[in-house]
């Protein structure tokens, strides 16, 4: 029986995306020493909005959302969901603060706050990256504390984290393209990062499938099930091999030239679709295995 459905799948995806996007944004911002203010601002905002939507979906999935405050105010701290909720809330606050420090939001009255936040931007970026990746990993750890054999391999949180980074990075590349800011790295360098993340993710994905105990593995490893088709075609073939490996490799062939807008957009779209399908397939297959 499917207890956790589409809302949770989307939430898992958005959590990973938000975490990965923030970490990528803060890293690129650090490399450029704050030289890509518009990109960073956008990256932080998209990350924050993703996380916020994810949280709304999470609430919507609860049987009694009006009681959700208990997780924060009277949590049973042993529960992974309780500490996960704290991680996410802290991440959300850090993300908002980071964005505010870069933005003009609130005009004159908020100026002191904004400049204060801007002054501690490094701290916010470091902590935000930390809590961002914790959020991405947590989406996998959450599933790992369950009876579902498909969710228990330790490679799953790793896969979700790497996938979060990949999706976040793909969005960031699109934002860089949109703002046209100089990131101080060559287009080839940027594509290379994407390619490396893609190869790592592919390896982790294969490792994950290999470490699922045999009777349950078929639910996702076999092409005879819907989830198996989704996993191999949607996630591995389209999202990973084409989106994260082949397309970046194509841009690498013309190292000096920035990739075409169509290519950037296609790459981001494929990676996002793949990342989403990953969460969906694992979540559903886990409950039928």
């Amino acid at each position: 029986m499917v207890e956790w459905g589409i809302l949770i799948a989307t939430y898992l995806f958005l959590g990973g995306l938000a975490g990965g996007l923030f970490a990528s944004t803060a890293a690129l911002d650090a490399i450029t020493r704050g030289g890509i203010r518009r990109t960073s601002k956008l990256g932080a905002l998209v990350s924050w909005v993703s996380m916020a939507i994810g949280l709304i979906l999470l609430l919507a999935d609860l049987g009694r959302p009006e009681h959700a405050f208990r997780i924060m105010l009277a949590p049973h701290m042993e529960s992974p969901m309780a500490w996960g909720a704290w991680v996410i809330v802290i991440f959300t606050v850090l993300g908002l603060a980071y964005w505010l420090g870069l933005s003009d939001f609130g005009g004159e009255p908020l100026k002191p706050l904004r400049s204060a936040l801007n002054r501690i931007k490094d701290l916010l970026g470091a902590l935000g990256s930390m809590f961002g990746l914790m959020t991405a990993a947590y989406t996998g750890i959450l599933l790992g504390f369950s009876r579902q054999s498909l969710w228990r391999p330790w490679a799953l949180p790793v896969l979700f984290t790497v996938s979060g980074i990949a999706t976040g990075y793909a969005v960031l590349m699109y934002l860089v393209h949109r703002t046209g800011e100089d990131v101080g790295l060559s287009p080839a360098g940027l594509s290379k990062v994407e390619l490396i993340v893609g190869v790592i993710e592919l390896l982790v994905a294969l490792l994950y499938v290999a470490t699922i105990p045999t009777p349950a593995r078929g639910a996702i490893a076999s092409l005879t099930s819907v989830n198996g088709v989704l996993f191999w075609l949607g996630f591995v073939a389209v999202g990973l091999i084409i989106g994260e490996i082949l397309l970046p490799a194509i841009s690498l062939r013309t190292p000096e030239k920035a990739p075409s807008p169509a290519l950037v957009l296609t790459t981001a779209a494929l990676v996002l679709i793949g990342g989403y399908i990953l969460r969906y397939a694992v979540l559903y297959a886990g409950q039928v295995a």
């Binding site: 970490a23 803060a26 890293a27 650090a30 500490w83 991680v87 970026g125 470091a126 990256s129 930390m130 809590f131 961002g132 990746l133 914790m134 991405a136 990993a137 947590y138 996998g140 750890i141 790992g144 330790w154 949180p157 984290t161």
Partner: peptide, 13 residues
């Protein structure tokens, strides 16, 4: 695992 993710995030930055 969560702690490792935290370290990874911090390290990346």
């Amino acid at each position: 695992a969560l702690a490792m993710a935290a370290v990874a995030g911090l390290a990346a930055w």
